[in-house]
């Protein structure tokens, strides 16, 4: 169907077609972010015996769009003495890596933008770039609150990245591959074969480090309303602030997608028997997007649940947890996996 277009564009076909695919991934993601903010307000509302947003549209379903419109029409105030160019680059720098990481996330066995072999490394590299947006926002704002927020956040993200990286090392040892599709393929055979069971401590470390990496509650030292107003984005208003918001929620979805792929069997159905259920010739309950989305939603619910449950950590406690608890746990478990792989239980992994 597209061959005539392909022939007409020649060498430029590949980049143009790739951009089309990028848009097809990015637009649903942004809508998912919009409804994640809605879900967050509703779920936390219910947990606190409130109703949550219910005025805009039926059940408040149009609330995210009302918020976006409000943000768009607000003035962007640039503080006096701010480094103007960096002030505007910072929100873009925090959003871009969050979007770029999606290039290698496999949605199903065949649906992936770029099936590269070093996928896991690429994800690590991209998630380590997100800290620049926060650092620059804090520095460029020329405000003490923002600067303190950015320093806290930089130290926190750099610390938790190590534990997160070690958790991923465990996964790549178990799967014997850095390719995200091969990692999911290694968990074939139902819920009992998922890596969450042999790698349970790493899964917990990954999830908690993921919350810390996205600066979410209870690790939101970078914002800390009661201590430093709003931390690194205190000087931002309007759509520039909305970009930080978007990046945070995009990163949440990314963390849940990665946890799904690496520990929860990705798009694989937990019960292989469901692959045989046929509805009008199709297999709606078998392996596919359905299970992927259900698993994302479950992990995102845990994110929201934790936010509604725990009080904020103290700064030195965060550092202690990252360096003195998580890193030793991951190191011990990696050695343990390495030892197990030399025994007759090696079949547990792949």
């Amino acid at each position: 169907m597209l061959e005539p277009v392909e022939a007409a564009m020649g060498a430029w076909w590949l980049p143009v077609w790739t951009i089309v695919k990028v848009i097809v991934i990015a637009i649903p993601l942004i809508i998912a972010v919009a409804y994640l903010t809605y879900a967050e307000r509703k779920v936390i509302g219910w947990m606190q015996v409130r109703i949550g947003p219910n005025r805009v549209g039926p059940l408040g379903l149009l609330q995210p769009f009302a918020d976006v419109l409000k943000m768009l029409f607000k003035e962007i105030v640039v503080p006096s003495g701010a480094s103007r160019a960096l002030f505007f680059i910072a929100p873009m720098l925090s959003l871009a890596p969050a979007l770029a990481a999606w290039a290698v996330i496999p949605f199903t066995g065949t649906l992936v933008l770029s099936n590269i072999n070093a996928g896991l490394l690429y994800i690590l590299a991209m998630s380590s770039l997100g800290v620049y947006g926060v650092i620059l926002a804090g520095w460029a704002s020329n405000s003490k609150y923002a600067f303190i927020g950015c320093l806290r956040s930089a130290a926190q993200i750099v610390s938790y990245e190590i534990a997160m990286g070690f958790a991923l090392v465990g996964v790549l040892m178990a799967a014997n591959s850095l390719n995200l599709r091969d990692i999911v393929a290694g968990q074939e055979g139902g819920a009992a074969y998922w890596y969450i069971w042999p790698l349970l401590p790493l899964f917990v470390v990954y999830l908690v480090a993921g919350i810390a990496e996205t600066n979410r509650h209870p690790f939101d030292m970078a914002e800390g309303e009661s201590e430093i107003v709003a931390g690194f984005h205190v000087e931002y208003s309007g759509i520039a602030f909305a970009l930080f918001f978007l990046a945070e929620y995009m990163n949440m979805i990314l963390i849940s997608a990665l946890a799904t792929v690496m520990f929860l069997g990705g798009w694989l159905s937990p019960f292989p028997i469901l692959n045989d259920v046929s509805v009008f010739g199709a297999h709606p309950f078998g392996d596919g997007m359905l299970w992927m989305v259900i698993k994302w939603a479950a992990i995102l619910l845990v994110f929201l649940w934790i936010r509604a449950t725990f009080p904020r950590y103290r700064y030195d406690q965060i550092m202690r947890l990252g360096w003195k608890v998580f890193i030793p746990v991951t190191l011990v478990w990696i050695v343990f996996i390495g030892a197990m792989m030399q025994t007759r239980y090696a079949g547990m992994f792949h």
Partner: peptide, 26 residues
């Protein structure tokens, strides 16, 4: 050379330069 490229981003951009910035800013 995708491994070298990603290692450059991961190590130098993601870690070394963050600490650099950290020090330079203060």
């Amino acid at each position: 050379a995708e491994f070298l490229a990603i290692a450059l981003v991961l190590v130098y951009v993601g870690a070394v330069m963050v600490l650099f910035l950290f020090v330079v800013m203060m």
